[in-house]
C-alpha cells in the first residue's frame, strides 16, 4: 500500500445517487402535470440501460458488478427518459437507450472515456430519425381534451392502441417552444402567440422550477460547480434579453427561454456531466456559454424546436481543445 493511506471519497456511486435523487422533484412534477406515463418511460429506459450495460461490460471483459453499481447507466437512462416525450412508444425508448449505452458509451471505452454525452447522443439520434414521435408531447393535464388511465397508457406505449373514442391529437400538443417557432413562421405577433392556451399552462414552468431545485441541491452538495449552470443560464438570459429588448414582437422574453424546453435540465444535469465536459474552471465557463449560445441560435434559426442536445454535442467536440487552452497557471508560476 502507498500513501495516502486514508481517503474521504464520496464514491462515484454516491455522486451518481445524489444526482439521481436531485431528479426526483422533476419526475414528481412531470407525473403531477402530465400523468404517470413518464414513470413507464423511466422504468423501461432503466431496465434497458442496465441490461445493455451488463451485456457490454461482459463483452468487453470488464467486471460487471462495480460498474453496474456506479449508477452511471441509470443516470443516462433517466436523463434520456426525461428528454423524450412521456408517452413515446416502447421501441423509441429502447432504441434511444441502446444507442446511448452501446454506441455512445461503451464503443468509446465506457465510463470516463466517452467524449459525447450518452443521453444526448441517444436523444439526437431519435429526433433525427423519428421527428414525428419525438415531438408528440403529452398536453398538460389542464388543457388536454381527454385523459388516459394507466392501463391505456401501457396499451398505447406497447401496442400502439388507443381507446376507441380518443384520438392522439386530443392527448398531445406541441411544446411551447415548438409552438413559438411555428407561430412565428406564420408571422403571428408575440402577444397573440403568448395568449394561446399552451402558454396558459404551468406544467413546463413547474418542471423547470423542479430541475432548478434539484440543481440547487447539487450545488449545495458540491456535486456540480457553479460555473456551468451560471454561465449557461447567464448566456441564454443575456442573449434573449438583449434581443427581446430590441424587438419584443419577435423575440420571446428571457424568462420564457429559461423556463421552457431543456434549459434547466441542461444547465444542471446534462452540461455538468464531468466525463464529457472540461475540467478547468475557465474551461467550464467557456464550454457552458458556448452551449448557451448554440442553444439559443438553434432555437431561433434551427430546424428543431429545442437546441440543447445539439449544442451539448457540438461543445463536447471542443472539450479537449478547451481544456488544453484553459490550463490554469500552477502554484508560483502566476503572472
Amino acid at each position: 500500500m502507498n500513501s495516502p493511506y486514508i481517503t474521504r471519497s464520496p464514491s462515484v456511486t454516491e455522486i451518481m445517487v445524489k444526482v439521481l435523487a436531485a431528479l426526483i422533484p422533476a419526475i414528481a412534477a412531470d407525473v403531477w402535470f402530465f400523468g404517470p406515463a413518464v414513470l413507464v418511460t423511466l422504468a423501461l429506459a432503466s431496465v434497458t440501460a442496465l441490461v445493455l450495460e451488463a451485456f457490454m461490460l461482459r463483452l468487453r471483459g470488464r467486471p460487471v458488478k462495480p460498474f453496474l453499481m456506479d449508477g452511471s447507466a441509470l443516470l443516462t437512462a433517466w436523463l434520456l427518459g426525461l428528454s423524450i416525450p412521456p408517452m413515446a412508444p416502447w421501441w423509441l425508448i429502447v432504441t434511444g437507450t441502446a444507442f446511448a449505452i452501446v454506441i455512445a458509451k461503451h464503443l468509446y471505452g465506457g465510463l470516463g472515456s466517452n467524449p459525447f454525452n450518452p443521453a444526448m447522443v441517444g436523444y439526437a439520434v431519435l429526433i433525427i430519425s423519428f421527428p414525428v414521435q419525438m415531438t408528440q408531447w403529452l398536453a398538460p393535464a389542464s388543457i388536454a381534451q381527454s385523459h388516459l388511465d394507466f392501463s391505456s397508457i401501457l396499451d398505447y406505449m406497447f401496442f400502439h392502441a388507443l381507446p376507441a373514442n380518443t384520438g392522439l391529437d386530443a392527448l398531445t400538443s406541441a411544446t411551447p417552444l415548438d409552438t413559438l417557432k411555428t407561430q412565428l413562421h406564420l408571422d403571428k405577433s408575440m402577444d397573440a402567440i403568448m395568449s394561446l392556451p399552451i402558454y396558459g399552462t404551468i406544467g413546463g414552468k413547474w418542471m423547470a422550477a423542479a430541475y432548478l431545485a434539484g440543481g440547487l441541491y447539487l450545488l449545495q452538495q458540491k456535486i456540480v460547480s457553479w460555473h456551468v449552470p451560471v454561465s449557461f443560464i447567464g448566456t441564454i438570459a443575456i442573449l434573449s434579453g438583449a434581443l427581446h429588448l430590441v424587438d419584443p414582437a419577435h423575440y420571446a422574453s428571457p424568462l420564457f427561454q429559461l423556463a421552457s424546453g431543456a434549459t434547466m435540465i441542461g444547465a444542471f444535469f446534462i452540461l455538468t456531466d464531468p466525463v464529457t465536459g472540461p475540467t478547468t474552471p475557465k474551461g467550464k465557463l467557456l464550454f457552458a456559454s458556448g452551449a448557451g449560445f448554440l442553444t439559443y441560435v438553434i432555437r431561433l434559426h434551427g430546424g428543431y424546436p429545442d437546441g440543447v442536445a445539439f449544442a451539448v454535442l457540438l461543445m463536447n467536440i471542443c472539450v479537449p481543445l478547451i481544456d488544453a487552452y484553459t490550463q490554469p497557471p500552477v502554484f508560483g508560476k502566476k503572472k
Binding site: T7, V12, L111, G112, S225, P274
Partner: peptide, 13 residues
Amino acid sequence: PKALDPMPCIRCA
C-alpha cells in the same frame, strides 16, 4: 482499511 478498487477517472476535477 484496504484501498478500494480503482475505477476509471470521471474527470470530476
